[in-house]
Design a protein around this nucleic acid. Structure first.
Lengths: 154, 154
DNA sequence: TTAATAAAATTAACATATGAATAAGGAAAA
DNA sequence: TTTTCCTTATTCATATGTTAATTTTATTAA
């Protein structure tokens, strides 16, 4: 590319994959997940099952719709993940008596203890990441990304 | 949670999904992809097919290994995606005469014109996002995330 | 040179992502 | 009240994510 294009370079550059925000988000997430995958594999959890269990452990009983949003999983996927987690006795499915369309999901005692047993190892990895990049930098990223997430709900 | 826990709050809070960097990255990406999905659907491309085509259009002929890294796709997935793109005449597969284990992938003329035809619409969406959040903020995010990505290859 | 080893791509098997369609219950308008 | 429309969850079909195993070709060690 020669000098005549200088004016429009900043626009043309936007199409480059190296400067693509969506691709960069994907790569950054992958870099981080690399540290957690061995732990999840050791306990036979997929990323998604782990997210569902954490959300239920944190928020308490919850309908499938909210759970899907919180865990960042689409409902068709969640339906199957729920079945797996129920088979493994980590969560319980109840009916909503006020609205029979809904189902109420809740973490079981077995799910709770599983969560607690993994938590220390998980936190250790988290702290090593925090140490690696610096707490300030991570908080800065979290703040900036939250702005993106919250934009549509203004 | 009461005041006695104040000291350890910053550590305990780390386990909250709201402060999870990996989940936040996922949600932020989803917020952005929402703007692009209609365009990709209109042209019958999946996100991954689109990434592969863009990378090949940008880097020129490339072996499957490099392509997988650049497009952020695992090689088993890439194998299938490549077959689809070849069937649709968007890319071409050649052999590497120096190393017969490798394959060389290249965008076709049809692929190039498809890319060019979508590019204006894509750029328009990109600019609206840039306007929405501000160029500075986006560049700041890109820089911070790139640090995370580049950490392992120090 | 031969045997062992490593690398590149593919295949296999199972889980999730995505969009469309379906089923069933609830809410609103006629 | 009944028809219509909306919401919630599920199912279906196709594509991709993930790990392990396999195939083919290079490379290295013996």
């Amino acid at each position: 590319m020669n000098k005549e294009n200088k004016k429009s370079d900043s626009l043309i550059a936007l199409f480059e994959t190296k400067k693509s925000l969506t691709i960069t988000l994907l790569r950054a997430r992958e870099s981080l997940m690399m540290s957690f995958r061995p732990l999840l594999a050791k306990h036979s959890f997929t990323e998604q099952q782990w997210r569902v269990l954490r959300v239920l452990g944190e928020k308490g009983p919850c309908d499938a719709g909210k759970l899907a949003t919180e865990a960042c999983i689409l409902s068709p996927s969640l339906s199957r993940i729920i079945n797996t987690l129920i088979e493994n006795n980590f969560i319980i499915k109840k009916e909503d008596k006020l609205d029979k369309r809904k189902i109420i999901l809740e973490i079981s005692d077995e799910g709770k203890s599983k969560l607690e047993s993994i938590k220390p190892e998980y936190m250790a990895i988290l702290k090593s990441i925090q140490k690696r990049y610096g707490e300030d930098k991570i908080n800065k990223i979290l703040k900036l990304l939250t702005e993106i997430i919250d934009w549509r709900s203004r």
